[in-house]
Computed example of a mutant assay.
Amino acid sequence: MSVLSVEHLSTEFSTEQGTVRAVRDVSFTVEKGEILGIVGESGSGKSVTMFSIMGLLAGNGTVTSGKVMLDGTDLSVSSFSSPKEYEKKMQATRGNDMAMIFQDPMTFLNPVLRIETQLVEPIMNHTKLSRKEAVARAIELMRKVGIPSPEKRIKQYPHQFSGGMRQRIIIAIALACNPKLIIADEPTTALDVTIQAQVLDLIADLKEEFHSSVILITHDLGVVAQVCDRVLIMYGGKIVEQGTADEIFYSPNHPYTKGLLNCVTNPEADDSVLTPIPGSPPDLLKPPAGCPFLDRCEYAMKVCRDYMPDATVFSPTHSSCCWLNQKEGASQ
Rank of each mutant, 00 (worst) to 15 (best):
Thr188Arg: 05
Thr188Gln: 10
Ala190His: 09
Ala190Ile: 12
Ala190Gln: 11
Leu191Ile: 13
Leu191Asp: 08
Leu191His: 13
Ile195Asn: 14
Gln196Pro: 05
Leu200His: 15
Leu200Asp: 10
Asp201Glu: 15
Asp201Cys: 14
Ile203Gly: 05
Asp205Lys: 15
Asp205Gly: 15
Lys207Val: 12
Glu208Met: 13
Phe210Asn: 09
Phe210Ile: 15
His211Gln: 15
Ser212Leu: 13
Ser212Val: 02
Val214Arg: 14
Val214Lys: 15
Ile215Cys: 06
Thr218Tyr: 12
Thr218Ala: 10
His219Ile: 13
His219Gln: 05
His219Val: 09
Leu221Ser: 03
Gly222Pro: 04
Gly222Phe: 00
Val223Thr: 04
Val223Gln: 11
Val224Trp: 05
Ala225Arg: 13
Ala225Phe: 12
Gln226Gly: 12
Gln226Glu: 15
Cys228Asn: 13
Asp229Ser: 13
Arg230Leu: 01
Val231Phe: 07
Leu232Phe: 01
Leu232Tyr: 00
Met234Tyr: 09
Tyr235Leu: 05
Gly236Phe: 02
Gly236Glu: 03
Lys238Val: 02
Ile239Phe: 02
Val240Trp: 00
Gln242Lys: 15
Ala245Pro: 03
Glu247Tyr: 07
Glu247Trp: 04
Glu247Leu: 10
Ile248Ser: 00
Phe249Ser: 09
Tyr250Leu: 14
Tyr250Asn: 13
Pro252Asp: 08
Pro252Ile: 01
Asn253Ala: 08
Asn253Glu: 10
His254Val: 01
Pro255Asp: 07
Pro255Leu: 04
Tyr256Asn: 04
Tyr256Met: 00
Tyr256Phe: 12
Tyr256Ser: 09
Thr257Val: 05
Lys258Gln: 03
Gly259Trp: 03
Asn262Val: 05
Asn262Ile: 01
Asn262Thr: 09
Cys263Leu: 04
Cys263Gln: 04
Thr265Ile: 11
Thr265Ser: 10
Thr265Trp: 00
Pro267Met: 03
Ala269Phe: 01
Asp270Ala: 14
Asp271Glu: 12
Ser272Pro: 03
Leu274Arg: 04
Leu274Trp: 06
Leu274Lys: 04
Leu274Asp: 04
Thr275Cys: 01
Thr275Val: 11
Pro278Leu: 05
Pro278Val: 03
Gly279Glu: 06
Gly279Ala: 06
Ser280Val: 08
Pro281Val: 03
Pro282Gly: 00
Asp283Leu: 07
Leu284Met: 07
Lys286Met: 13
Pro287His: 05
Ala289Pro: 01
Ala289Met: 09
Cys291Val: 03
Leu294Tyr: 15
Asp295Gln: 07
Arg296Asn: 09
Cys297Leu: 02
Glu298Lys: 12
Glu298Ile: 08
Glu298Leu: 09
Tyr299Arg: 07
Lys302Thr: 14
Cys304Met: 08
Cys304Asn: 00
Arg305His: 10
Asp306Met: 14
Asp306Leu: 11
